[in-house]
Design a protein around this nucleic acid. Structure first.
Lengths: 210, 210
DNA sequence: GTGGCGCGTAGACAGTGTCTACTCTGTCGT
DNA sequence: ACGACAGAGTAGACACTGTCTACGCGCCAC
């Protein structure tokens, strides 16, 4: 955990088995889902014996936690890229926090839709080390950024921005999860997330002047 | 599956191993969480060999689905009891749909908080049979009731009631899940769900005249 | 050279879900 | 009355999992 390429180096430094295991795990969960994330299967795909990962990850959960940590990084990148791209194509108001929140929320649901396995892993707390530092270190900054944007919009001044941000996050997460399972399609009869996304945004941020 | 006590009889008819397995499973998940819901452990606690459940449940997932089905029934009862009790103590307006939605949402979060293991199982789609009829049969009526109440409130007429109801459900589910994991406490700094519950209700139903 | 040590292998162990062969027991047809 | 039979549960095997331990191999310092 305090190794050279533990947190500093963002991508695999090719040689290291540690990062290779994480990369292989990320590919595996994307290809075959959480169920396929067996310790032995990851080791197999990395081309090592089933005992090798233990040198770097004392437990199966710690390896999965490292994979989920990379997932949070990917999510963070995905969100950052979305707002940047959006603010680039609409050259004018990059400072509109409401528009930023809109693209942020859309990108969040988009990530969950396009990376279902990884997103599931990221919130399967029974598969992650409870006190894993990396997870909170990676996810908390995203949330505080969300709080900052919500505070700028301030549709409901009496409610603390953190609470509104938390409620919005919970709404997005619930939507992602129930949609991923198919429950929301069945319940609402819709075949597109957009209406639910708009409902969540309008609800927590107030009616949009779209 | 087409046995006598398959779906018709609501509670255990004492003798039957089938219902005993479900009961034992429900107790086990309440006591020790989803991880403890092993086929062999359930059989052990039911006092039979590990092969016995196979006579009634062809697969581990089908047994877990039956347990989750009972969980949805318990949730339904819990919600019904809450609104009934509330409308009884406030003798006057039992017809106020907004108040009913309020107690409904509170009861939903309360169930998730007091039955964490069962609630987790109910939404662990990887542990449930995908096409299990009983689950949808039990959960869909609850949702249509929710839709009916939302339609009566009609804060946002342009949005379909089903979409608003779906968004509200997603919000509640996300809150329950993230709160159960501790993420929302860490993010918002709160130690009580109430603010998040109020935020969700105010957001989706409009500011309350409380 | 030789001892240590990082790094990975190989095997054992208990536990799991599934499958199959078997026993027991009560009921029914003749 | 008696044997066939179907329902219900047992017992053991199999492949697979995560963890643990003992064992090699290669490389570097001294």
């Amino acid at each position: 955990m305090d190794n050279a390429n533990a947190a500093g180096t963002p991508e695999q430094e090719d040689g290291g088995l540690r990062s290779r295991l994480v990369t292989v795990g990320a590919e595996l969960v994307a290809a075959e889902g959480v169920q396929a994330l067996t310790l032995r299967e990851i080791a197999r795909r990395a081309g090592v014996s089933h005992g090798a990962p233990r040198r770097y990850f004392p437990t199966h959960l710690s390896l999965l936690s490292a994979i989920a940590r990379q997932g949070f990084g990917e999510l963070s990148d995905h969100l950052a890229a979305a707002v940047q791209e959006k603010s680039a194509e609409e050259s004018a108001a990059e400072s509109d926090p409401r528009a930023q929140l809109r693209t942020l929320a859309r990108a969040y649901l988009d990530f969950a839709r396009t990376h279902p396995g990884m997103y599931e892993l990221m919130f399967r707390h029974d598969l992650l080390e409870s006190g894993h530092l990396g997870l909170r270190e990676t996810s908390l900054p995203m949330f505080t950024a969300l709080v900052g944007l919500v505070a700028q919009v301030r549709t409901r001044p009496e409610a603390e921005a953190r609470v509104v941000a938390g409620a919005l996050w919970a709404n997005l997460h619930g939507t992602a999860q129930l949609w991923g399972w198919g429950s929301l399609q069945l319940a609402t009869g819709a075949d597109d997330v957009e209406p639910l996304l708009h409902a969540a945004l309008d609800a927590h941020l107030g009616q949009a002047p779209r």
